[in-house]
């Protein structure tokens, strides 16, 4: 029970994923929503590395998936922050409830 196996790591990353989804759905602040997305991406990274280590220890595919996920997360964060700054400039707020120009 106490020896850490693949099982426990998968549970931890499932819990991290849940925390990220909950934060994404409940926070109304665009920056904290983006942080929740980073949390979700990190739980997926943990899954990839754990599967790579436990099931195929001689291969490196999981590690490379994680490398590319980190790269894409960096690009995504830069673009999302540019969009958020633009939104802040036009609305003076980053509450998602205020960004409703396309709604009506």
């Amino acid at each position: 029970m106490l020896a850490p196996g693949l099982y426990h790591i998968l549970f931890i990353s499932a819990a991290l994923f849940f925390i990220g989804v909950y934060g994404f759905l409940t926070r109304r602040n665009l920056i904290t929503m983006l942080m929740s997305i980073e949390l979700i991406l990190n739980s997926v990274n943990l899954n990839f590395i754990a599967f790579n280590k436990y099931l195929w220890p001689q291969k490196m595919d999981g590690l490379f998936f994680t490398v590319f996920i980190i790269a894409i997360a960096a690009a995504e964060a830069a673009l999302a922050i540019a969009i958020i700054i633009n939104l802040y400039r036009s609305h003076q707020s980053i509450d998602v409830g205020n960004a409703e120009d396309l709604k009506y």
């Binding site: 990220g20 934060g23 929740s36 949390l39």
Partner: peptide, 10 residues
Amino acid sequence: VALFSALMVI
């Protein structure tokens, strides 16, 4: 630590 600080994030 990971789970607690992730909870504190949100």
